[in-house]
Computed example of a mutant assay.
Amino acid sequence: MADTREHTLPGTKGALLVHEWPHTRPRYLALLVHGYGEHAGRYQEVAGVLGAHGAAVYAPDHVGHGGSAGERVVVEDFEDVVSDVHAVADLARAAHPGLPLVLVGHSMGGLISARYAQRHGAELTALVLSGPVIGAWELPGRLLALEEIPDTPISPAALSRDPAVGAAYAADPLVWHGPMKRPTLEAFARTLRTVAEGGDVGGLPVLWLHGDDDRLVPLPGSRVGVERLTGGAGGDLTERIYPGARHEVFLETNRAQVFADVTAFLDRVLPR
């Protein structure tokens, strides 16, 4: 797979940095949507797997994250972030017209991707949700009830059983290591309601990946949202729950199995 390229787009709230992992003859497009406080550069391994599988891969740093503009980790409206992701999809489609588009969203990126599928689902061939913030996620309400948001950053140990993952996260200068901010928490709460009320995604194939020891986005709360999004028994939902795995299943000790599950799902749903 070729080296990463970078693009700058005029996002809804300022300059948007977009990472591209090119492919000389792709058979589909994969759009990676990263989580809270991190950046798309952490998805190099995922991009490599998808590239070897035939994808040209694109991934923005969201507003307030990574190399994009904005106050750090402030997202005032996730509808704007969905619009930014859609602009990246347009960039990818302009470079590779007619190819199927797969959306892969992790954590906060799962919330963004779920809302994207509600707004633009007809443009997607498949949706992959990893530890998605969707359904009954109690953290925003709990923190918003406090007069002051506590300075309790994400514990690196909650990400993966692989200690090297936590160490790299803690040392990454592009990762936010401070407290959550009230406007972002308010946007989370608002968008969780919007997605809950926004209807299902019809027959769009959805793959849901989750660790059963995810303490950041507990599995039972996500299940409520995933089942609602996919329309229950009438939808096309594939779920893979990994015993003992924590929040970042793409960086877990069993990630070879996770990647195999992703590519097997895509082999089923992509046009031959």
Rank of each mutant, 00 (worst) to 15 (best):
P173L: 13
L174I: 09
V175W: 00
V175D: 01
V175T: 10
V175H: 07
G178T: 08
G178V: 09
M180I: 11
M180Y: 12
R182N: 11
R182C: 14
R182L: 14
P183K: 08
E186L: 15
E186P: 05
A187R: 05
F188I: 01
A189E: 12
T191F: 08
A196V: 02
A196D: 09
A196W: 06
E197P: 00
E197V: 02
G198E: 08
G198A: 09
G198N: 08
G198M: 08
V201M: 10
V201K: 01
G202F: 12
G203I: 04
G203A: 15
L204R: 02
L204N: 01
L204T: 02
P205R: 03
P205K: 02
P205F: 04
V206K: 00
V206Y: 01
V206F: 05
L209Q: 09
L209W: 03
H210F: 06
D214Q: 11
D214F: 09
R215M: 10
V217A: 15
P218N: 04
G221N: 08
R223G: 08
R228E: 12
R228M: 10
L229D: 06
T230C: 09
G232N: 06
G234L: 06
G234C: 07
G235S: 10
L237K: 00
T238N: 00
T238W: 00
E239P: 05
R240D: 00
I241D: 02
Y242C: 06
P243H: 13
R246K: 15
R246S: 01
H247I: 12
H247G: 11
F250K: 03
L251Q: 14
T253Y: 03
R255L: 14
R255G: 11
Q257Y: 04
V258G: 00
D261W: 02
V262A: 07
V262Y: 02
A264W: 10
F265T: 07
L266A: 07
L266I: 06
L266R: 03
D267C: 09
